[in-house]
Amino acid sequence: MIKYTIKRFCLMLFTLFSIMTICFVLIKSLPLVVDVGLGKDAEFLEGIIEARGYRKPVMEQYVTYLGRIFQGDFGVGINMEKGTYVLDNFLQRLPATMIINIYAMLISVPVGLGLGIFAALKKNKWQDQVISTGVMIFISVPSYVYAFLVQYLLCFKGGLPLQMKNGTDWLSWDMFVSVLAPVLSLSFGTIAGFARYTRAELTEVLTSDFMLLARTKGLTRGQATIRHALRNAMVPIFPMIIGEFVGIIGGSLIIEQIFGVPGVGRLYLNSITTLDYDYFMFLSMFYTAIGLAAGILVDLSYGFIDPRIRMGAK
């Protein structure tokens, strides 16, 4: 298992490094755009560019860039948030994104699993049909469409704040109310995903032979379901939760934009519109790494559970 983990991790690092190289070369081969508008200190910016060697050949810059990364220096803003360190700014914005995703997870996991279990127990009855139809709808409809609905019905008609409030009181009640709308918009799809997956896993387990054995031993249906079926069904569901949690951070960009969340998503979009290469570079790597990490986490936990995958069987 350790060998497999190391192998996967090395492969991930290799992939990440390749992508970083490609991105760096592509982005730095573009002409450096410096946005010196009214009241913006041109000399100051020019000083930064000179000091950091942003006009040198691309490969030379890349070597310096790699060296700086190991010192935790991911560059500074030129066009956006002028002169600020990318990493500092990023860490400042991260909590807003995280809080939304954590709340979304806290809602989605119990509701999604609950619906899935309920549907599996009532398989092919009307309750299951209703849940399955709902799941199909919620999986298919794009998340921004719920966001519009939530924004119109709950925020505009229902009185929830339209935009997320600023501030750093992440755990206060006010903050909770103001993030409720984006959290709900994010949750629908995740709930549906969990419910579908749980239902599929649990129905499979419920029809297996050991469940029959458990019943013949004299366990009631409830006992058998909780002690035997659920435990076994959770084995593949758990890694999915981890993967989904990591994946949702990367996927919440559009929701962040709609609800004006002062998080990483806005930073990223700003870096694209203002052509700030250092920010763009770092955040691109962030989103790429998130995607890779989600994949590797899921694979690893599968490998942990299922020895056949660990052995690298095709």
């Binding site: 992939t15 992508i19 002409p31 990367g250 691109s284």
Partner: peptide, 24 residues
């Protein structure tokens, strides 16, 4: 490996890079 690397880049990043390169 090639498809791994290409597949790991989010669509948005690819698009932005291509668009910037093209407008250059």
């Amino acid at each position: 490996r090639i498809s791994d690397i290409l597949g790991a880049i989010p669509m948005m990043i690819v698009l932005t890079l291509v668009r910037l390169q093209l407008s250059n």
